[in-house]
């Protein structure tokens, strides 16, 4: 059984990413279960998608200390979910901070760096990705989710291959987004190997 948690900020596309993982697992004949944050939090609040793959799963929510992998769409959101990570579990995170208005208003100066430092100190199995650079290069901030999926698969953390994910993208996304997302997937994978 594999438990994967996707943590981000509303609007970053965690829901689609979790669907792609689950659907790819199903294409392999496995069962999947997910839980999503939908509603008010999608307006810039914290959102978490739980993905569970395997045949004997009851709860859609991953219990604490049971996640094999956390995909952090934002460094502080990865940190927030650490209580879910099992011992020796892996974390892959985008290093780009999303600054809440509260930070700008109070001038608290959250930069994200303190979070990546904390991750480095506390997670042995850690992969950091400059996903923003890849998005800029691809000319779309919207593909952050697929860049991170590519990175996770590229690092061998997902138990799914890039080909499997690519196949799902081709099946499930509207025609006009397929090429961009396939690119995002391979760029993500390439970046994580280098890092």
């Amino acid at each position: 059984m594999t438990n994967c948690l996707l943590a981000g900020v509303g609007g970053q596309g965690t829901v689609l990413a979790s669907k792609l993982i689950a659907q790819s697992a199903m294409n392999r004949g496995l069962n999947a279960r997910t839980a999503e944050t939908i509603g008010m939090a999608q307006r810039g609040g914290c959102v978490v998608s739980h993905v569970r793959i395997g045949n004997e799963i009851h709860s859609p929510l991953i219990p604490q200390h049971k996640a094999d992998l956390i995909i952090g769409f934002e460094p502080a959101e990865a940190v927030r979910c650490l209580p879910y990570l099992k011992e020796n579990g892996a974390v892959i995170a985008s290093i780009k901070a999303v600054k809440p208005i509260t930070a700008a208003l109070t001038g608290s100066g959250y930069s994200g760096e303190e979070m990546t430092v904390f991750l480095k100190e506390n997670v042995k199995n850690l992969y950091l990705v400059d996903a923003e650079a890849i998005c800029n290069q691809l000319g779309s901030a919207k593909v952050l989710n697929v860049v991170l999926l590519g990175a996770a698969a590229g690092a061998g953390l997902l138990e799914l291959t890039l080909e499997e994910l690519k196949k799902t993208i081709c099946e499930k996304l509207p025609e006009r987004f397929i090429e961009l997302n396939c690119h995002a997937l391979s760029e993500g994978a390439a970046a994580v190997r280098k890092g």
Binding site: G44, V79, R80, P83, P100
Partner: peptide, 14 residues
């Protein structure tokens, strides 16, 4: 569970 550092607060916004 390990103690976490102070995390940014994210109330939903327009």
């Amino acid at each position: 569970s390990k103690e976490l550092p102070a995390l940014p607060v994210r109330p939903p916004v327009l």
